[in-house]
């Protein structure tokens, strides 16, 4: 379809200190209804959004990290995470939760949505987009 545009949501903030992360996720879910080619980028403190084991019971806010696992149902299955941002923060891919999607074109095989990319690859991904929304 020629009128499908590439949308990239850029996430650079940690999850609970500000409202940016939650707002971004809500916009992604709402925007998914428009059936565009959607991808998410996580860099700088944004990589903290995907850590596993989040438990917000003690701080009185909603834990929205499980919602990332629903993104596959919304046909959002490209979550680019920047390796350098992880390393700078002492994290590795193992610290992130597992997020899977089912590939419709491959007999519904389960595949990981998270793709670790280098900073240079991230810059290239950004340069391929029609629209970039930053949070």
């Amino acid at each position: 379809m020629s009128d499908t545009k590439k949308f990239l949501y850029v996430n650079r903030k940690a999850p609970y200190g500000t409202i940016y992360a939650l707002e971004s996720l809500e916009v992604v879910l709402i925007g998914a209804a428009f059936e565009q080619d959607v991808a998410l980028a996580f860099l700088d403190d944004g990589v903290f959004q995907l850590t596993k084991g989040q438990d917000t019971a003690g701080i009185g806010v909603k834990n929205f990290s499980p919602t990332f696992r629903a993104l596959g149902d919304y046909d959002v299955n490209k979550l680019y995470v920047e390796r350098e941002s992880l390393e700078e923060r002492g994290l590795t891919e193992d610290d992130l939760q597992e997020i899977m999607y089912e590939d419709e074109d491959d007999d519904w095989a389960e595949k990981p949505s998270i793709r670790i990319v280098s900073r240079a690859e991230m810059a290239e991904i950004m340069a391929e987009q029609d629209v970039i929304l930053s949070f």
Partner: peptide, 12 residues
Amino acid sequence: TQTLLSCLNHCR
């Protein structure tokens, strides 16, 4: 914030 440096590091 690190924003300017992060931006410059992602420029082409």
